[in-house]
């Protein structure tokens, strides 16, 4: 299986991850090797097998729709790299008209 540098760039963009040219080159080589290893799974016929997404059978859990105490705003903001009042502050998203 190929994992060309162009694919690493494409996937990195999807993942919002900036990579250096050196990283792109190295990951392309290493991921090629890893993908050819995981291709081993194609030896197995799985048409009639249902998928397992959790090891133990689980179902959705509901709770009563009640107001209970939660983290207060100051605590929730205590690790914020930038804040303004009770909000997390980020660079402007919408330009002025």
């Amino acid at each position: 299986m190929a994992f060309e540098e162009s694919e690493v760039r494409y996937v990195a963009a999807l993942a919002r991850l900036s990579l250096t040219d050196e990283e792109i080159h190295r990951f392309s080589t290493q991921l090629k090797q890893i993908l050819s290893y995981v291709d081993k799974l194609n030896q197995l016929k799985t048409d009639d097998i249902s998928p397992t997404s959790h090891g133990i059978p689980m179902q959705n859990v509901f709770r009563k729709d009640e107001v209970i105490p939660s983290l207060d705003v100051e605590k929730a903001l205590s690790n914020a790299p930038a804040r303004e009042g009770p909000f997390f502050l980020v660079p402007r998203v919408i330009e002025d008209a």
Partner: peptide
Amino acid sequence: NLQEMFENTRGEGFGAEAKRRIILGTY
């Protein structure tokens, strides 16, 4: 801008193995 902030924060913040797994997992 916001997009660059995401990309640069993640690019500088994560180490090599984390980046490798993000790439493989996203792929």
